[in-house]
Simulated assay, not measured.
Amino acid sequence: MAIEVYTVRRDGVVVGPPRATVSVPYGYEPALEPLNTQLASCACPVHRQAGAR
């Protein structure tokens, strides 16, 4: 399978030729990413001052 990447304006008009063409071989299986729901701690000034919960 070949995937072509185009530049598109806001109104949906394609501008210029394809920017890139990527070939994906038949049967390619990417590595599975672990499902993780833990989020990083908030670092904004409000929550840095709040301390541990």
Rank of each mutant, 00 (worst) to 15 (best):
G12I: 00
P17T: 05
Y6A: 02
L35N: 10
L35M: 06
V5D: 04
P45R: 13
A50Y: 01
E29W: 03
E33P: 03
P34F: 04
L39F: 00
V46L: 10
S23L: 12
P18Q: 11
Y26D: 14
I3K: 09
P45Q: 09
A50T: 07
A52F: 05
I3C: 01
Q38V: 01
A52K: 15
P34W: 05
G27N: 11
Q38D: 03
D11E: 01
P17K: 15
R48E: 09
P17H: 09
E29L: 05
G12Q: 07
E29R: 13
V8Y: 07
V14S: 10
Y6I: 02
D11C: 00
P25T: 08
Y28K: 09
M1C: 07
G51A: 03
V24D: 02
L39Q: 09
A20C: 02
C42G: 01
T21V: 13
R9W: 02
P30Y: 00
A2Y: 15
Q49E: 11
V24I: 14
V46H: 13
P25C: 05
G16H: 01
V14C: 07
A43D: 10
L32S: 14
Y26I: 11
V24T: 07
R19K: 14
V8K: 13
G12C: 05
Y28R: 10
P25H: 08
C42V: 06
Y26S: 12
P34H: 09
V15Q: 15
L32T: 10
G51N: 03
R19G: 04
Q49G: 03
R53M: 00
A40R: 15
V22A: 08
L32I: 05
T7R: 15
S23M: 04
R9T: 11
G27Y: 08
V24K: 13
A20V: 00
V22M: 10
L32A: 14
T37I: 14
R9P: 02
E33H: 09
R9M: 09
A50P: 03
A43H: 11
P25N: 09
V14M: 12
R53G: 04
A31E: 12
R9V: 01
T37L: 15
A43E: 06
S41F: 00
H47W: 06
Y28L: 07
P34A: 11
Y26E: 15
D11N: 15
T37C: 11
Y6K: 11
C42W: 02
G12H: 09
V5Y: 12
M1H: 12
G51Q: 01
V8A: 11
